[in-house]
Simulated scan of single mutants.
Amino acid sequence: MAGTPTAPPKRALALGLVGACHPVPSLAVTAVSVLLAVGVGHDAAGVALIGAAVLTGQLSIGWSNDRVDAARDRETGRTAKPAATGEVPVGWVGAAAGLALAASVVLSSLLGVLAAAALLVGVAAGWAYNLGLKATPWSGATYLLAFGALPLAPYLALPGHPWPEWWVPVVGALLGFGAHFANVLPDLRADAATGVRGLPQRLGPRWGVVVMAAALAAASVVLGFGPTDTSTTFTLVAVGGGVLGALAAAAVAVRSPDSPAAFRITIAIALLDVGLLIAAAV
């Protein structure tokens, strides 16, 4: 029938959905959770369940972000956003977000009440960010909450539901806070054009870089000195690696403010810290 819109080819739709889910941060957060689950002693089934619960939650956050921001992304000409360019219909992105959210709730519930609460608090914080908090001074609080709660889940899903040491969620929260700034800094000009005024936008690029570097370095300092039974070598590696990484991320953000390189360095710092966290926990 003339004028009836046609659905995109299946391959194009699939690729568009992959591009709209924020694949790099989604996979990075999932990888961190899987590594931590292995490190604290989960069996293969437990690791797979934690990974699936985290991944579906991250997919729901990524897809909901692109669904909510489709018009804004179209206005600022963000060609890497499939929902904004029409590569994938926004309705499909919204449906994918809803399905992923439902899957995350179900999968998280299989881990037990406490572990599910930790994971779903993070998912709720991500959705709250997408639905409006990203444009307020409280944007950073959603990252502090989500990434502070995330590392609790692998511990709370163990038999007996043991709580981790205090420094575990603190390291996660600081890494998440730094990642917020690293992720937003390349988009400051586009955000200014569309009225998004989150914490990084209010601080501006100069102070944003300072806060990002300080948060990332602080995470590594807490990790280096928080555990009481680790070696001097552990402390030096944790603090030295994290501080150097934070300085590298700051240098890249200043030199190439529109590049995602600082965010990728942040992911590398997170993976280093998770490896060290596992070494300290076992």
Rank of each mutant, 00 (worst) to 15 (best):
V170N: 09
S220K: 03
L216F: 14
A31T: 12
V252F: 07
D187G: 10
L114E: 15
G240M: 09
G226L: 03
L99W: 06
R72Y: 10
Q58G: 06
L203Q: 08
P162W: 00
G98N: 07
A96W: 05
A279I: 10
P227I: 07
G86W: 07
V54H: 00
W63D: 04
A192L: 13
G112E: 12
V123F: 06
R197C: 01
A193S: 13
L133P: 03
W92M: 14
K81A: 06
I269K: 01
A179L: 15
P257L: 07
P164F: 02
V239F: 06
F147T: 08
G126L: 01
K10C: 00
S139A: 14
D73C: 09
H161V: 15
F225L: 15
V170I: 15
W166D: 01
G86T: 10
L185A: 09
L247M: 11
L110M: 15
W63E: 03
G172T: 02
A250L: 05
N130C: 10
G148T: 09
A7G: 13
D191I: 06
A20F: 02
A102S: 12
A103N: 11
A103M: 12
K81S: 02
A53H: 02
A213G: 00
G39F: 02
L185Q: 00
A149S: 14
V47H: 02
G112D: 10
R72G: 09
G178Y: 05
G122V: 02
G241M: 09
R206Q: 14
E75Q: 14
F263I: 08
A248I: 13
A83I: 04
A262G: 07
A219R: 06
W63I: 05
G204P: 09
G46K: 11
N130W: 03
T85N: 11
V168S: 08
A70L: 04
A125Y: 03
L111W: 05
F225K: 01
V24E: 13
V105H: 06
S26L: 07
